[in-house]
Simulated scan of single mutants.
Amino acid sequence: MNQAPTEHAGLALSSHFQPIYSLAHRRTVGFEALLRAKHAGRPLMPGQVFALMEDPEACYQLDLAILRTHVAHAPVPSEPRWLFLNVHPASLIDPARTALVTESIAAAGLSPQSVVLEVQEHALGGDDKLQQCIRQLRKQGFLIAIDDFGVGHAHLDHICEMEPDLVKFDRQLLRSASNNPRLRNLLFRLVHLMHESGALVIQEGIETDNDVLVALESGCDLVQGDYIARPGLAPDGDELITPRIDARWDELMVRDLLRRKITRRQLELARQSFVQSAILLIQNTPFDEAARPLLSMPNVLRCFLLDSEGRQIGRNLNTKQAATQSTHPKFAPLADTTGAIWSRRAYFQHAIDQPGVLYMSEPYLSMTDTRTCVTLSMAIEIDESMHVLCTDMLAPSSGR
């Protein structure tokens, strides 16, 4: 398919389109329009193109020319799909300019509901006019996406203020999460945070098999990148994309199934040991001795005992692997938890509400040694007084 370039200020402008794919729907749900530009026959990156412009007015005129090029050559889908268009901040500093943007889109026969306008996250800070123009676009029915979230210093207040429909995570977040288990867990939580704010999440920069697995594990909604499909005038269709994604999905399911089997076995052994220790405590066995069955488990970090108000009785009983880290000088201010009050923790509240029922918390960051753990807890009666027996375990590996 040939595309005659648009000439503007000595630049030759043309468009490529890259699929944006829904992991849950197993199909392409949109295309991002990507600029291809040449100056004197030399290819330029989009940032270089705008760097040639001398002032905001020139940037706005260029942005309008690019947008008109994109909508003129956008794929005509046979089913509802979004067209993602990047909008330069220069087009969003005046309602009159924003009106010309929307008129150009309407002139191409596109409804606002089928267009996602992407605004870079770093351009949002404290500009009332820009926020006003974005609200204007939302009222007309356009979807709004924050682009490049996670570049430099991301501002969560921008998410709250803009209430975007979608947030695009920068590829660097994915790169970092692929190489660091803690950051993989953070990526999962960031996705959850965006969902809490009412925004769907697009993960950009999917380039490898492992990137797909990380994206699947993160819980993101949509994915984009060269592994999914390279940009083109007529990019790959779902008949080519879906088998690639399905293969990674199957791999993840097999891996998760094995992990769950291991985790179930570990938790069952921990449960048996927990009940042993609880029975010994009910029989007035000293805590140090009663906790031995639990402390012998390989993934257990520590045991501790709370009174009926959530106040810790005595010290933590640490296993060797917990003691190695918790006694490190940098954690010394957190090491002694004697008398600490844990009444606001879910593991205490659930246990005290249902005596005799074993509860396992969600993974959380331990204040004692800053590792991710889960806490098993059960309310039991000792000397006619309610107590809560607790044990911290390393959180079962979830790939996050």
Rank of each mutant, 00 (worst) to 15 (best):
P80H: 03
V388R: 08
E7L: 14
Q131P: 06
L240S: 09
L64D: 12
A72P: 05
R81P: 05
A40W: 00
T324W: 05
S22G: 11
P355E: 01
L394D: 14
C303D: 00
R255E: 12
L85D: 02
G198E: 08
I66Y: 11
D147T: 10
D127G: 03
W82S: 10
I202T: 06
R315A: 12
D148M: 10
L394I: 11
I241W: 00
L213E: 11
R311G: 07
G141W: 05
D392A: 01
N86W: 15
P46H: 04
A106N: 00
R292A: 15
D221E: 04
V87H: 06
A270C: 14
P286Q: 08
P286V: 02
V374M: 13
Y227K: 06
S398R: 13
Q131Y: 13
P56A: 02
V191Q: 02
R260K: 11
G310T: 10
K330Y: 13
R265I: 04
F188N: 07
G125H: 10
S176V: 15
T370F: 10
D288F: 07
T337H: 11
L376E: 06
Q3Y: 03
M297N: 14
G47I: 05
I20K: 04
L280E: 09
D307C: 05
E268P: 05
L306D: 02
I262N: 13
C220L: 04
L190W: 09
A335T: 14
R36E: 04
N179V: 08
R81S: 07
I144A: 08
R175H: 13
L156Q: 06
R248I: 13
P231D: 03
A65H: 11
S397H: 09
R302Y: 01
L130D: 00
T285N: 15
H70Q: 15
Q120L: 12
G225E: 02
A51Q: 00
Q136S: 08
P80G: 05
T327E: 15
V201S: 04
A395R: 00
A9P: 03
Q120Y: 10
F348M: 01
C133W: 01
P243Q: 09
G399S: 09
A24Q: 14
M162D: 04
S176G: 09
G399L: 07
A199L: 11
A40Q: 13
H39P: 01
L187P: 06
P75L: 05
D236R: 00
V49M: 00
Y21I: 12
A351G: 01
L294Y: 02
F17Q: 01
H8E: 03
T102Q: 07
Q18F: 05
R175V: 15
F142H: 13
T370K: 06
